[in-house]
Design a protein around this nucleic acid. Structure first.
Length: 487
DNA sequence: ATGTCC
């Protein structure tokens, strides 16, 4: 490995050293308290080093955070984000550490869920275009208001407090939906910690897809790598599944912005001392950290509920079109959240606050937080590719705890900026090209299509290969797109 | 990601 000089925020001269295949480490320099650990193939890590991507400088800055443990992690899909890279993990001591909104992301608890339908490709063949139309008509997409559930402020407060449980009580979820959702779709959220303006934005957005890289995709299981695991997840070759990628909409975004402002006001000297002001944080012992956590958890509940309400819409559409459809939740897992967890650090077990930003929790078989049905397999992990490519179903790997605090990649990872992608691609051509391959795409905006063009993403096969080889998540199945709706 | 600039 040759020596590479990164010109980051502090002119850090770093040498990412390959310590084993697909594992790179940057030794602590300057204010770094721990090393930075980068997982990726040579070409993926090389992409992180290009002049316009500050991923490696960012993760070194993250490694300076008070209370950070072991190493700051970049996953194979990592790329530049607000303060922290998208595709990073930072675990801090639950007592002496800090919480940083930049380590969670603006779209709080954005995540992915997978539904199985009980249908095979033969059942839907020839009706993909109609399916795309019906889903697009039924589920609100794009920026701004649009809800598939009639709610008022007090309903949203209920959602913020108890998440999917609130929907179950209101008849918008099945008990099995709770059991197959990370944290049972509920973290200890406090609606009173969510700013009123955010709450108002949430009223019209329960059960809405959003924009950008969010999507709802009908897929066909095109390959099974591990038939025992696939059977446990209830999916089979040629089965039709639905993947939903969405978050907490304007509510989460507004909540994040609000607390970044609050943190900046409360700690005016902090920004000056930080390598990057976007890393603004609050010590976990401070009242403000507790408030942010309560708000973040509430927004997380909103995100789970949002994906649940869209699931209900999918159930309606499928039962309308296919008598024999039985839409069930395989699993739902977020990738923008900080949760308190117990981890082995050296010889000790320690309580840590694990920031995952664009990183999926990937708990191995036997872990107590894996649903009973999957206890022997590991937690389901979903890695969507770009619009035109396959997606993967994985199971939390045996080495994820030691390597990444129990985390895996969350997608292909952006390779080109939105603006760059918009310049290079045309919406009409893209839609036609996909259609020629049997993929029916519906989107509110042509701009979204070009920004999300397959060419704007890294190769998902390569990301998943690294993930599998490292034991972060092991391959269970591959899916290919049939119909995709976007914002 | 986001009523993409209160």
């Amino acid at each position: 490995m040759r020596v590479v000089v990164i010109c980051g925020h502090g002119d850090n001269h770093v040498e990412p050293v390959e310590i084993e295949p697909n594992v790179y480490e940057i030794a602590p320099t300057g204010e770094m308290r721990v090393p930075a650990r980068v997982y990726g193939s040579e070409s993926l890590v090389e992409a992180m080093r290009t002049a316009d991507d500050q991923t490696l400088a960012q993760i070194q800055d993250v490694a300076t955070l008070p209370g950070i443990q072991q190493f700051a992690v970049v996953l194979p899909d990592g790329h530049r984000g607000y303060g922290f890279p998208v595709g990073s993990v930072a675990a801090v001591d639950a007592d002496d550490g800090v919480i940083s909104p930049g380590g969670v992301g603006f779209d709080i608890n954005c995540g992915v869920r997978l539904l199985r339908t009980g249908l095979t490709f033969q059942d839907v063949a020839g009706r993909e275009s109609m399916l795309a139309d019906r889903l697009f008509q039924t589920i609100p997409t794009g920026l701004g208001p649009g809800s598939s559930l009639d709610t008022d402020i007090s309903d949203v407060r209920g959602v913020l407090e108890t998440g999917v449980e609130w929907l179950l009580n209101e008849g918008h979820a099945r008990k099995a939906d709770l059991e197959h959702c990370e944290e049972n779709g509920r973290l200890p959220g406090d609606p009173n910690a969510v700013p009123t303006e955010a709450l108002k934005r949430g009223v019209d957005q329960v059960g809405s897809l959003g924009s950008g890289n969010h999507f709802l995709e009908v897929q066909r299981v095109s390959e099974v790598y591990d038939s025992a695991a696939a059977a446990a997840f209830g999916i089979d070759l040629d089965e039709i599944v639905v993947m939903i990628h969405a978050g907490s909409r304007g509510l989460g975004h507004q909540t994040c912005s609000h607390y970044i402002d609050e943190f900046e006001r409360a700690y005016p000297d902090l920004a000056e001392s930080l390598p990057n002001e976007q890393l603004v944080y609050a010590p976990l012992s401070d009242r403000l950290a507790g408030e942010y956590r309560s708000a973040m958890n509430a927004a997380a509940n909103f995100a789970w509920a949002n994906r649940q309400v869209m699931t209900q819409a999918v159930r309606e559409v499928f039962s309308d079109l296919f008598e024999e459809a039985d839409v069930q939740l395989v699993y739902d897992v977020g990738h923008n959240i900080a949760t308190e967890e117990h981890h082995a650090v050296g010889d000790d077990e320690q309580t840590l606050l694990v920031h995952r930003k664009g990183a999926t929790r990937a708990l191995p078989a036997g872990h107590p937080d894996v649903p009973d049905a999957y206890a022997d397999i590991g937690q389901p992990v979903f890695v969507p590719g770009d619009m035109g490519s396959r997606s993967y179903v994985l199971a939390g790997g045996s080495r994820s705890l030691e390597r990444s605090f129990g985390s895996a990649p969350h997608g292909a990872g952006r390779a080109k900026s939105r603006t760059q992608a918009s310049r290079e691609y045309a919406a009409g051509e893209l839609q036609q090209a996909l259609r020629a391959r049997g993929i029916f795409v519906r989107a509110q905006s042509g701009e979204t299509l070009t920004e999300e063009s397959p060419g704007a993403y890294k190769n998902v096969d390569e990301v998943v290969h690294v993930c599998h080889e490292l034991g972060l998540g092991t391959k269970v199945a591959q899916t290919t797109p049939l119909a995709n709706i976007k914002g």
